[in-house]
Design a protein around this nucleic acid. Structure first.
Length: 277
DNA sequence: CCCGGAACCTGAAGGC
DNA sequence: TGCCTTCAGGTTCCGG
C-alpha cells in the first residue's frame, strides 16, 4: 500500500525521467478513475502539456504542468505507476491497466491498479489538497508542539488518529504501527492523552520511520513496485507491521494483531504498554 | 462536531 | 479439490 515513503520513492524515480517531457496522449480504460474533469475533457486537455515539476503532498503525486494546471494522482491501495519504452511489450495483466499516458520522450507511463480504486484529476492548482491535508511530517513546520496540538483535539485511539490525513499527511496503516512501536506507545492510547515525553518520542519516531523507509525504496508488502518494476525492501526491516505471530526484534515477545477502527494493527504487547510510562 | 461504519473494488487467503 | 466467505485498507460519504 503506497504511503508517504512509497509515493516519495515513485516521485523521485519519475522526476529525472519525465520532467521536461510533454504528454502526447492518454488512454483511459477504467473511466471511473478520472475524478475531474470529464473523461473526454481530460483526454482532450492533457496532450500537449509539458511537465515542469513532479512533487508529492501526503500520499498524492502531483505533476505540475507548464500551463499552471496540475495532474494529481492517488494510488490508493493497489495502484502502481510503471515506466516503459513505448512499443515494448510489458507483462502487466491487461485488466489491471487503468490508464496509459504517452510522452514525447518515447516512454509510456502505465497506471496499473488491481482493485481500481486509484484516481487521477486534472485541476487548475493544488488548493483543494491543502484543505484536506495536515502538515508534511518530514517538513520544517512539523514540530513536537504541532504534533501535540493536533493530537490533543482527538480522543480516538492514537493509531487511528495517526492515519487521519487531516491530522498529519502521508501516514497510513503500516507506518503508524511502526512509529508507535519505535515510540513505545500502545496503539489504543487515546490520542490526546500522550505526555510531553511520549509526544517527543512519537515525533522523532514518525520522522525516523519515514526517512528509513524512503532510504529502502518503500515497502513491497502487496502490489507496490517502483516505476522501473523493482520492489522496495522496507518490508524486511519492519519491527511490527505485518508481522503477526512473529517475535519482537527487541524483546522476542510474539507480535500481536488487533483491529483498531477495522484496520489490522500490529504491536508488541511488551514494548508498547497500555499505561503511561 | 465527532465517531463509526458502509461503499468503492477484486484478488488472495481461509474455512469446510 | 473447489466453492464460498472474509479480508485487505485509503478515501469519501452518510447517519446517529
Amino acid at each position: 500500500m503506497p504511503e508517504l515513503p512509497e509515493v516519495e520513492t515513485i516521485v523521485n524515480d519519475l522526476r529525472p525521467e519525465l520532467v521536461g517531457s510533454c504528454f502526447t496522449g492518454v488512454s483511459i480504460s477504467w473511466h471511473r478513475m478520472v475524478l475531474q474533469p470529464s473523461v473526454s475533457e481530460f483526454q482532450r486537455r492533457l496532450p500537449g502539456q509539458v511537465i515542469t515539476e513532479i512533487a508529492r503532498r501526503g500520499k498524492y503525486l502531483i505533476f505540475r504542468l507548464a500551463s499552471g494546471e496540475s495532474l494529481i494522482l492517488h494510488l490508493r491501495m493497489t495502484g502502481s505507476l510503471l515506466l516503459q519504452r513505448k512499443g515494448k511489450h510489458h507483462s502487466e495483466p491487461l485488466s489491471y491497466i487503468t490508464a496509459i499516458f504517452s510522452l514525447d520522450n518515447g516512454t509510456e507511463l502505465l497506471f496499473t491498479d488491481r482493485r481500481k480504486l486509484g484516481t487521477v484529476s486534472l485541476v487548475p492548482g493544488e488548493a483543494e489538497l491543502e484543505g484536506k491535508l495536515g502538515p508534511e511530517p518530514l517538513g520544517p513546520t512539523f514540530t513536537p508542539k504541532v504534533l501535540s496540538e493536533r493530537l490533543n483535539r482527538h480522543k480516538a485511539p492514537i493509531k487511528a488518529v495517526l492515519c487521519d490525513q487531516e491530522v498529519i499527511a502521508g501516514i497510513g496503516n503500516m507506518y503508524a504501527d511502526e512509529a508507535l512501536f519505535l515510540a513505545r506507545i500502545h496503539p489504543l492510547r487515546a490520542a490526546g492523552s500522550l505526555n510531553e515525553d511520549e509526544i517527543k518520542r512519537l515525533h522523532h519516531a514518525i520522522r525516523e520511520v519515514l526517512r528509513n523507509a524512503i532510504g529502502r525504496g518503500g515497502a513491497s508488502i502487496s502490489d507496490y513496485r517502483r516505476p522501473g518494476g523493482e520492489t522496495g525492501s522496507q518490508q524486511n526491516a519492519f519491527y511490527v507491521a505485518h508481522r503477526g505471530g512473529e517475535t519482537c526484534k527487541v524483546c522476542a515477545t510474539p507480535i500481536e494483531r488487533i483491529p483498531v477502527r477495522n484496520r489490522g494493527t500490529y504491536f508488541c504487547p511488551r514494548c508498547q504498554q497500555t499505561t503511561c510510562s
